[in-house]
């Protein structure tokens, strides 16, 4: 296990290097440049201004030099400065990453709270009205465009039944109770959708597990049904559910752009999306890189966890 872990960690090095090349390449290929978005209407066309800004941002150097500089700096933990706000990228991003992680974690947690009981009961009462109901609900959850669902939630719970704030963010370190209050709507919007996936997954892995021999053995030994289901089957059936939730968590790290836009949630997705529009190169590059490393790390952890939970999986 240890050797496997070390091996996997070593494999991350080329992955991250490839990621830097890909990100850098994409950012370089973006049409137009930062000076166009900084300049306002007029004096951008002034070659003197352009030259001064290019020099300041290091854009006058050849591309490979820019790349080498960027990677070199990152290796020492320096992410550079946002060309738009002129604050360090680390400051720009470190304020936002927690907001996104907070939203993603609570959203996924909520989805599990909904999905596990729903999926389990649907599997146990297979082909009943409950099962069909759960399936239809989860299919609807998958098929509604996210932004539409979010706006409907806002109108429903902030305007027609005004019980929740429509939007905004309060850091949990600032005021935990209040932060949860503001989190409810966005987390529901994340959770409902993710729950749609996980419910279906839980249901099918439950069905899979119930049909196994040990369940019949347990039943024949006279164990009560609830104990068979909840003590033995569910535990095994949850392994894929938890695994997939972990993968969903990784995907959510850059995937909540739409919800962050709607709920005025100052997350990393919104930040990078805006940086793309403004061509704020250091923020895009470093932002995607940091997220990418987090995604890779989460995937690795899930993989390892999966192997711990499910020893039948071979290493290698």
């Amino acid at each position: 296990m240890l050797i496997y872990t070390i091996n996997r960690l070593l494999q991350l090095i080329p992955v991250v290097l490839i990621l830097t090349v890909v990100v850098f390449g994409f950012v370089q290929a973006l049409p137009g440049d930062i000076i166009d978005s900084l300049g306002g209407q007029e004096a951008v066309e002034d070659p003197e201004v352009r030259a001064a800004l290019e020099k300041e941002f290091g854009l006058d150097k050849p591309i490979y030099v820019q790349y080498a500089r960027w990677v070199g700096k990152i290796a020492t933990g320096d992410f550079g400065k946002s060309l738009i706000t002129r604050r360090p990228v680390s400051v720009e991003l470190l304020e936002r990453i927690p907001a996104t992680i907070y939203l993603a974690l609570v959203g996924i947690g909520l989805s599990l709270v909904i999905a596990i009981p729903l999926g389990t009961i649907a599997a146990v009462r297979r082909n009943t009205k409950f099962d069909y109901g759960a399936q239809v609900t989860s299919l609807l959850g998958i098929s509604i465009p996210e932004f539409w669902f979010a706006i409907l939630c806002v109108l429903m719970f902030s305007l027609y039944f005004p019980i929740l704030p429509s939007s905004g963010y309060v850091a949990p370190t600032e005021d935990f109770a209040k932060s949860l209050w503001y989190l409810v709507l966005p987390a529901v919007a994340v959770g409902f959708r993710q729950a749609a996936f996980t419910t279906r997954l839980t249901r099918s892995s439950m069905l899979d597990e119930i049909s196994k021999e040990y369940v019949d053995t347990a039943r024949s030994l006279g164990l009560p049904e609830w104990k068979v289901i909840y003590k033995y089957t569910l535990r095994n059936a949850l392994i894929p559910t938890i695994t997939i939730s972990g993968l969903q968590l990784a995907a959510l790290l850059g995937g909540t752009v739409v919800l962050e836009t709607i709920f005025a949630w100052p997350g990393i997705g919104l930040t990078i999306y805006q940086a793309i529009q403004l061509r704020d190169y250091p923020v895009i590059q470093s932002g995607v890189l940091i997220l990418g490393v987090m995604v890779v790390a989460i995937n690795l952890m899930i993989d390892l966890l999966y192997r711990v939970l499910n020893p039948r999986v071979q290493l290698g």
């Binding site: 706006i151 806002v154 902030s158 704030p165 429509s166 939007s167 905004g168 005025a264």
Partner: peptide, 16 residues
Amino acid sequence: PKREDKVRLTALRSGE
């Protein structure tokens, strides 16, 4: 800052 017009208007109507 609340980008989405509907959300901003709702925030005003709900007193946020």
